[in-house]
Design a protein around this nucleic acid. Structure first.
Length: 348
DNA sequence: AACTTTTACAACCGCATCATT
DNA sequence: AAATGATGCGGTTGTAAAAGT
């Protein structure tokens, strides 16, 4: 069929808008309204295509646009909405007053997406990335079945791209080599636990208990299907991960510090659908309705001394490091709700 | 200080959808 | 019902500023 271009582009200006152009466009729209975008440039005395004018107005000149940095609440709302809506930026923007789809899209691509990736979360699915998930699954499965305990099993099933995960696997192997009897002893315990758990699958897994100098004590809640990460024997490894600031697991030998990766729960019975971020190791139902028996320890370590209240995002006061880093630390701990007006039926 | 690389964001482009004729 | 036009959307690009070497 072939369509004519939205406007005759010959002689039309492209590129950044000048203040004069902005003024012309703003003045025109304030007096006449946008009307027909195609004819607007001519009427307003602009050498731009209508599409360009519309975009400039919608993304930059509109008076109700809120400029400046995204707040914690806005950012978390974006993440939540994106987990429900995907890349429907206009739909997301419609729920963030004063923000444009373009702005949200840019912010997602330059900030949020990268942070999620850094934290081991797939920004598309909002689920933990497979390479990490697989390792924990493999470890759990392996500890439930020592006959397959080998590096090749640890590493062969999936490419483990994260060097820290490789180190973790290596630590397990070292433990096997250096203290085989201890490992065996605990593997037997774990097997027993596995079989117990397989009989009482609904029981919540005991947390990764940890005491100074304690030896391997792993509780894979549901064996191979669980992603519980054994943490105790790799204490030094974990601690080094923690201090590196990039740890995927959170363990401490002074206190139990287990922080879950955020999980999304949709409350189906609620007339106003609400998506919660929870930080508990529990069987939950995700937004998509698929069962997410997900028990993945913190993707980022959170020191015990953290001054931040676990459920408070809005009351946190920026005190030292960069805002981004703090957001990174706390985003997994936040609980918030999608605005009441959100109708999921719209998107399904 | 100069150069290179990275980051952030405004703007563009092509396509899809809706409205009108 | 089909053709055409207008608008909106999302992916991508271009570029200025910042950061790093």
């Amino acid at each position: 069929m072939g369509r004519t271009p939205c406007c005759d582009k010959t002689g039309l200006k492209k590129g950044p808008w000048t203040p004069e152009e902005d003024l012309k466009l703003t003045n025109y729209i304030q007096i006449h309204g946008p009307g027909n975008w195609r004819t607007l440039p001519k009427k307003a005395g602009l050498e731009r295509c209508g599409k360009s004018c519309r975009l400039r107005w919608a993304n930059y000149l509109r008076p109700d646009i809120k400029r400046g940095r995204f707040s914690f609440e806005e950012e978390e709302t974006i993440i939540q909405l994106h987990s429900v809506l995907g890349n429907k930026w206009s739909a997301i923007a419609a729920r963030l007053p004063g923000r444009t789809d373009n702005e949200i899209k840019n912010y997602w691509n330059t900030h949020i997406r990268k942070r999620l990736l850094r934290n081991g979360i797939d920004p598309v699915t909002h689920a933990p990335r497979l390479d990490i998930l697989d390792l924990s699954s493999i470890l759990s499965s392996t500890l439930c079945n020592q006959s397959v305990f080998s590096v090749s099993n640890l590493l062969g099933a999936q490419a483990l791209l994260n060097p820290q995960l490789l180190r973790l696997a290596n630590t397990l192997l070292s433990l096997k080599q250096d203290n085989p009897e201890i490992l065996l002893q605990h593997l037997q315990q774990n097997q027993q636990l596995c079989s117990n758990n397989s009989q009482e699958n609904l029981a919540p897994p005991p947390p990764c208990s940890l005491q100074p100098n304690q030896q391997l004590q792993v509780h894979p809640s549901t064996c191979s299907t669980s992603t519980t990460v054994p943490c105790t024997p790799m204490l030094s490894q974990m601690e080094s991960m923690q201090t590196s600031g990039e740890g995927f697991f959170s363990c401490s030998n002074s206190q139990e510090t287990l922080v879950s990766q955020p999980n999304y729960i949709r409350s189906d019975s609620d007339p106003n659908p609400t998506v919660h971020l929870v930080s508990e190791n529990t069987n939950i139902r995700s937004i998509d309705g698929w069962s997410q028996n997900f028990n993945f320890d913190s993707l980022r370590s959170t020191p015990i001394s953290s001054p931040t209240p676990l459920n408070s995002s809005s009351t946190f006061i920026n005190s030292s490091s960069s805002v981004d880093d703090e957001r990174e630390s706390f985003s997994s701990l936040l609980k918030f709700e999608i605005p009441d007006g959100l109708d999921f039926g719209e998107f399904m």
